[in-house]
Structures are given as structure tokens and as C-alpha cells.
Amino acid sequence: MNIKTYLDSTYLKTAEQAGLSESENEIVVKGFIQEAIDEDFKLIMIRPNMVALARKIISNANSRVQVGTVIDFPDGKSSIEAKLNEAIQCIQNGADELDFVCNYEAFIRGDETLVKEEILKGTQLGLEHNKIVKWIIEVAALDDLQIAKLSALIKNVVIANFKEEAYEAVFVKSSTGFYKTVNNLPNGATVSSIKIMLENASPLPVKAAGGVRTYDEAVRMIQLGVKRIGTSGAKAIANGQASSSQY
């Protein structure tokens, strides 16, 4: 198994979150981009304001590493129009993959109409531009039944509106890695949440993000059926080591 083809090497901290200046944080981002090139990871996942930088570095290196970014991150509360505008800007800057944060709070409130509309319009925008689209459902904010229902909702919107050949380009993704849990409970992918997602999102692929910190954990997720793993410890995992990263 070439585990690197499953790994989305991820750095999503703002300068403030990292306790760095903007210029220092950009140096960190550049390091992650270069590492993804050197290690031949599937993708580098960075904030929207770093997309153009990543595209330039990767193009100059003649690398096949893809550029992914997050939309309406990390809360997912913005209007559909705001989500789409941010996604368009990222596409123009060279993003290959768009990881939208689903408005999971609206879902919890019972506003499925809003959620269905943003899934439809965001997916439509991405597919029209030949991009991979992922919908982050934030499993730590949901109970098991909600994980199942939101995964199925996304699947049903895609099946109802897009051709079968598009299914592999629309993922259901577990987590942002930034959700604040109580009592130090996991805020990312767990085996139990991923199993529920896989059962209810199929035939859409699933991405496990957050909480995967060792090679063995990554292999377990792949054996369960996930197609991608988001981690800021991609190099450590690929080398069979444990990552000290919190994501």
C-alpha cells in the first residue's frame, strides 16, 4: 500500500492560532508545501489566502501535488452566497479541491432546506469547474443519528442531481479539526463515526480528517474504506512514526 496517495497534508492554522506573525506563518505554510512536493503526497490542504502561493510553488517544481483549500472554515455558518464567492476566488487562484464546511448548526436546528441548497449549489460549482468537492459535517458536534442523517442527506442530494460518474468527486468529510469539545473528547475522526459515515454516505467516498496520528491508525481507516485522510502529521505517518500534531 502506498499510503501517501491517501494523505492530504494539512496546515490550517492562522498566524494568530499558531502564535506567529503573518510572515512567520507563511514560512510554515511554505515548508508544508515543499514537504508535500518532496514526499509526493496526494495533496496539500491550506487556507484560501495561501492557495495562489501553493499553486505557484507547485507549478515551479513541476509537481503533481494537488492544492486543496477550505471554504467557510471552520464554522460553516456563512450564507450560501458567501460560500460560493469564496469558492470561486479559490478556483481562480488555482485550487484543485474545495472542502466546504457544511452548515451543521442549521442541520441541527432542523433547517434541512438550507443545507440541501448549499450542498447542491456548492457541489454544482465545484463539478462545473472539474474540482473535487468535500463536505465537512463536523462529527464532534453531532450524535450518531445526526452523523448518519447528514451523511445520507449529502448523498441523496448528489444522487438526485448529478450523474453517477460524478459521485467519486464528492466526498463526505468528518471534521475541521478545530471544533471545541468538552472534557477533551475527540474532535476529529473516530472509528465509530467513520463507520457511520461509510454506511450512510455510500456510494460517495469518505475522508477521515483529524485524530489520525499514526501509520496503524491510518491503515485502519483505509481498511474501513476511507479514500482520503487529512492530517498535519503526514510525513510522520508515511514514515511509520506517531505524529505529535493535534490534527
Rank of each mutant, 00 (worst) to 15 (best):
V28D: 07
V29P: 06
K30C: 08
G31C: 14
I33N: 01
I33S: 04
E35T: 12
D38F: 09
D38V: 10
D38C: 09
D38H: 15
D40K: 12
F41G: 05
K42S: 05
K42G: 00
L43R: 14
I44S: 03
I46D: 00
I46T: 03
P48R: 04
N49K: 15
N49F: 09
M50N: 07
M50S: 03
V51T: 13
N60E: 15
A61F: 08
N62V: 00
Q66D: 10
Q66G: 08
T69S: 12
V70T: 04
V70G: 00
I71T: 03
I71Q: 01
P74M: 09
D75L: 12
S79R: 10
I80S: 11
I80D: 09
E81S: 13
A82G: 04
A82H: 09
L84W: 11
N85P: 04
N85C: 09
Q89H: 12
Q89A: 15
Q89D: 11
Q92R: 12
G94H: 07
G94I: 12
D96I: 08
D96H: 14
L98Q: 01
D99E: 11
V101C: 05
C102Q: 06
N103Q: 10
Y104M: 03
Y104G: 03
F107Q: 01
I108W: 12
G110H: 11
D111G: 06
T113R: 08
T113H: 13
T113N: 08
L114I: 08
V115T: 02
E117H: 01
E118V: 00
I119Y: 00
L120P: 00
K121E: 01
G122M: 05
T123S: 13
Q124V: 00
Q124P: 02
H129Y: 14
N130A: 10
N130L: 14
I132Y: 07
I132Q: 01
V133I: 15
V133T: 14
K134A: 02
I137K: 07
E138I: 05
V139E: 09
A140P: 12
A140M: 11
A141K: 15
A141N: 15
D143G: 14
D143Y: 10
D144G: 09
I147S: 06
